[in-house]
């Protein structure tokens, strides 16, 4: 019965999606729409070359706060569900050659992630993407060196500190906005120099750095919790 109803819904949905979605209008109804405003004034108002970043961290910065809170909530939930008071059972990792190669490569991966994070307002990228690359280092470490290696190097306490610290940095920068310009998450105007330089675009790079470390640490915690031998109780 349930599956039959769902099937009916299915056909209706196919009809809806195919027939009606194709009728999207070419022009938006509002003559001066959101995108016109952002494209027209984005550079001079925020100082960011990358308009997507300008929207994400300045015009709609509150969305990004909510978004990073979603990641924070997911991490908290995963740790809540999978937490066991057990040391991880480590695999031995891959061969010597792979370990050495990774050792040489790691600084470059870290550098690339830092580049993506700090140049969010100039080039494609930003805190979220760079943060995921940062987390990838942790993931590769636990694959290549075995899961205990990462645990010894970067303890869960350190990761937690980075994660919550990053989120708090976001809120503190927002609070600075109240202090200097009168509104929460206001772009800090005194940091805006000529567009195109690294330190421009007001608070956007700072927020990017906060989010980058937060996302990196958070996703590392997620991966680490998921590879933990959570059913080690038997042995």
């Amino acid at each position: 019965m349930k599956k039959f109803l769902v099937g009916l819904l299915f056909i209706g949905l196919a009809f809806l999606l195919l027939i009606n979605f194709a009728e999207l209008p070419e022009e938006k109804l509002i003559t001066f729409s959101l995108s016109d405003y952002y494209i027209g004034f984005g550079l001079e108002q925020t100082g960011a070359l990358n308009l997507v970043t300008a929207i994400l961290y300045d015009y709609r910065g509150f969305d990004s706060l909510g978004e990073s809170t979603v990641i924070f909530a997911a991490v908290s939930g995963i740790v809540l569900i999978l937490s066991r008071k057990m040391l991880p059972v480590s695999s031995h990792g891959l061969s010597f050659i792979v370990k050495r190669t990774l050792g040489i490569l790691t600084p470059f991966i870290a550098l690339f992630s830092l580049y993506v994070i700090t140049h969010g307002h100039l080039t494609p990228g930003g805190g979220f993407q760079g943060g995921v690359i940062l987390a990838a280092i942790s993931i590769i470490f636990s694959i290549v060196y075995g899961s205990a290696f990462d645990y010894k190097r970067y303890s869960p306490e350190l990761k937690t500190t980075f994660e919550t610290g990053g989120a708090l940095v976001f809120i503190i920068i927002g609070g600075l906005g109240i202090l200097f310009d009168g509104f929460f998450l206001d772009n800090l105007d005194f940091l805006t120099h000529s567009p195109g330089t690294l330190i421009s675009a007001g608070s956007i790079p700072l927020i990017n750095i906060g989010i980058g470390f937060k996302v990196g640490a958070g996703l590392a915690i997620v991966f680490y919790s998921m590879i933990q031998k959570t059913f080690g109780e038997e042995f």
Partner: peptide, 17 residues
């Protein structure tokens, strides 16, 4: 792509929203 180049200020971008 909705990203400005430093030397050429072309302003016909895709919708960034």
């Amino acid at each position: 792509v909705p990203i400005y180049h430093l030397n050429k200020f072309a302003a016909s971008f895709n919708d960034p929203v």
